[in-house]
Amino acid sequence: MRTLGHPEHADIDAAMWSQIDEIIRIHRPISGAIITVLRECQNVVGYLPVPLLDYIGQEMNLPRSEVYGVASFYALFSMTPKGRHTIKICLGTACYVKGIKEVLSRIENKYHVRDGGTTEDRRFSVQGVRCLGACGLAPVVVINQDTHGDVTSDKIINIVEQYE
């Protein structure tokens, strides 16, 4: 039973709404599917704006508090917009021992952005992440889908600059 239509939101267009509705339709009958729904919706929109969380809760027949609770618990979900390129900095132990801290501070200083933040021009989002399991290549930085191994604080800016 629908009580509200799609809420207005600048970052979600009609095509996205129809994908969101399809995701919800498939998963509504499956108990425990909220995490999957949130993940797939985030893949569509890029992040999870609060009005979208409200909409998902209503359509999945779950209290808003529960949806928000799940979305805020897991590191994968973001409620703030992301940049065009996501720079994931592996903060696993192997990368740490091999100097990822210096790489991160280099990026933070160069682009005036903190870990977890997005540059003002929305070019980059910088995200310190948990071990990516590519310890053989440590220290590791993943930009969008590309894994860069053996990065150092003097090499990293040249790598990042390739992403407009």
């Binding site: 609770g69 799940v70 897991y74």
Partner: peptide, 25 residues
């Protein structure tokens, strides 16, 4: 396959089960 969403504590067995149930792990 059930994909996690990035929470270390979900490696703990009871937390993992809560997570599959769609709750905070």
């Amino acid at each position: 396959i059930y994909q996690g969403a990035g929470a270390f504590v979900c490696g703990e067995e009871t937390a993992l089960m809560r997570s599959i149930e769609g709750r905070r792990g």
